[in-house]
Nucleic acid binder design. Structure first.
Lengths: 194, 194
DNA sequence: CAAAAAATTGATTCATTAGTCAACAATCAA
DNA sequence: TTGATTGTTGACTAATGAATCAATTTTTTG
């Protein structure tokens, strides 16, 4: 039997509209009416399917994380060595998938949202943890006890580059960001363990 | 003649209240009434002195930047060499002055606000530019042509560490953050120019 | 002191928006 | 076809909060 499809299609449209709006305005300070409008449905329907504005935004975030996760996994699958895997992770962070206009803005907004929304915080925590352990396990065979520290540094650097990218005033390109992150990685791998 | 003092005192109290509230809630999603309440004045007075909520928030940001700038300058004054100056800048970023509870949250919120407020963007741009050129000029004699790239990387790393610090889920301390940033700096200085 | 200026209030206005709801439309199953 | 289920609307409500303003108190000054 064909399961109810339209519901899923609509939910998807609403999520995409939410992401687009977050990207456009650069914040989660958005109305449900506007999201519904972009999705081409009534505000009533958006509430009907998601229950609340917060749930729409959380769904949007989950979507972004899913896309990101899939991208990373694809990169990892193609890699043989720890070095390659680390580079694949870094490259994924700045890949086009994760750079639809406004995605960086969305990330920023989510960081803020995580300050007061338990659900958002939980979601962000999962992301943090996954990235961290992914980096760490691949760093272990290369830098030993420094793995933890290098992983935190690399993850932070990536976050910081995202901020710089989302900032209109700066003139950093995704390619620049990738180069910087990869440069840091290589430098960390070749550094003598003091 | 004694210049009008009370006005300045009140404005100051309101700004401090705004910073406190941003820190407490972790966002700029705050009411003027609440800020006024914390400052111990009426909402009318807050509007009277600042004209709008946005102006209050921008003033709060300006205050934070001022404190930060003074801290950096103090550190620089005590330093003789480029190396020392670079370390002083990094240390200032994570010094107690800039770590009154909630300041990290405030930063995050301002990044978001800069997406849609021209005034906030301008202010943030000034900060970015100043930090960048401060780092760059001190890096120049040490790493030559790599100065620009290292400066961007270091500034981004600092931003990223701020995010990690503002995130409740993470268990990073300001000291950890300082160590990581300083570690990166030293590593960059000792790296062979490939 | 008296008049002017500065400081301050809080009630009010006006706009916005999240969420609800009752009704209607479309689709499907028997 | 008919009845049930699913999809959909938009008007409504209730709340919130920014900004205004006329009125009041306090301070300054001549």
């Amino acid at each position: 039997m064909p399961r109810t499809k339209i519901k899923d299609i609509r939910k998807n449209e609403i999520i995409e509209a939410a992401i687009a709006e977050i990207g456009r305005t650069g914040s989660t300070d958005i109305t449900v009416a506007k999201i519904a409008d972009v999705a081409g449905v009534s505000s009533g329907l958006a509430h009907h399917y998601f229950g609340s504005k917060e749930q729409i935004l959380i769904s949007a975030m989950r979507r972004i994380l899913t896309i990101f996760g899939a991208d990373v996994r694809k990169g990892l699958a193609r890699s043989q060595s720890p070095e390659q895997r680390l580079e694949a992770i870094v490259i994924s962070c700045f890949s086009s998938q994760n750079f639809r206009p406004g995605i960086t803005n969305a990330w920023l907004s989510f960081y803020v949202q995580a300050q007061y929304s338990k659900d958002t915080e939980r979601l962000l925590h999962i992301y943090y943890h996954r990235l961290q352990s992914n980096l760490k396990s691949n760093l272990k065979p290369l830098v030993g006890t420094r793995a933890e520290e290098v992983a935190v540094a690399l993850a932070s650097l990536i976050d910081g580059l995202y901020i710089r990218l989302s900032f209109k005033g700066g003139n950093l390109s995704p390619d620049d960001a990738t180069d910087i992150a990869l440069g840091f990685l290589r430098q960390s791998l070749s550094a003598t363990s003091a």
